[in-house]
């Protein structure tokens, strides 16, 4: 075992930690309507494919999505992302998470969805290169 090899293994562990942080911050932003910080999680040429809202390419289209869809919600639901499975390959990574939504309504209800993502490291910082949100997950039989 050489020092360089060990450093590489530690780097992967650090990268997983950083990617999980990025993703969790994104979900904190979703819940708190912190749109500028949320947009900052994306790379310039990233894509976002959120539920029924269609594929958006690049920061401009994603910004439009945020302000015409997310920001229009009367009440933003509770969000919880968990169960990350992250695989790192150099400066790129992929991962998936469970995302729970808890709408503010009575009686209590919940929705289970899933994030499938790609991440890219730009100037030492991890960003989303793509986010796909599917709900419900698993898909229900017809």
């Amino acid at each position: 075992m050489r020092l360089e090899e060990l450093e590489k293994r530690i780097r992967v562990l650090e990268d997983i930690e950083e990617i999980e942080k990025l993703h969790r911050k994104y979900v904190f932003c979703l819940s708190s309507r912190a749109w500028d910080d949320l947009l900052d999680c994306f790379a310039e040429d990233a894509t976002a494919d959120i539920w029924k809202h269609g594929l958006r390419r690049g920061k401009k289209e994603i910004t439009e999505l945020v302000y015409t869809v997310f920001d229009k919600l009367e009440k933003t639901p509770g969000h919880l992302a968990c169960q990350p499975i992250i695989s790192v390959e150099g400066d790129r990574a992929s991962g998936y998470w469970i995302l729970y939504l808890f709408p503010h309504r009575e009686p209590m209800t919940w929705m289970q969805g899933r994030h499938d993502c790609e991440y890219v490291k730009i100037n030492g910082e991890w960003k989303f290169s793509s986010v796909k949100f599917t709900r419900p997950w698993p898909e229900l039989p017809e």
Partner: peptide, 27 residues
């Protein structure tokens, strides 16, 4: 040092296994 790194890698791999199990359970 390698031994300590191995423990961190093992914890990560165990979490992955356990989470994969629950993804499979949910689907």
């Amino acid at each position: 040092l390698e031994k300590r790194v191995r423990v961190l890698e093992d914890i990560e791999a165990i979490k992955k296994l356990h989470r994969e199990y629950v993804y499979a359970l949910a689907s």
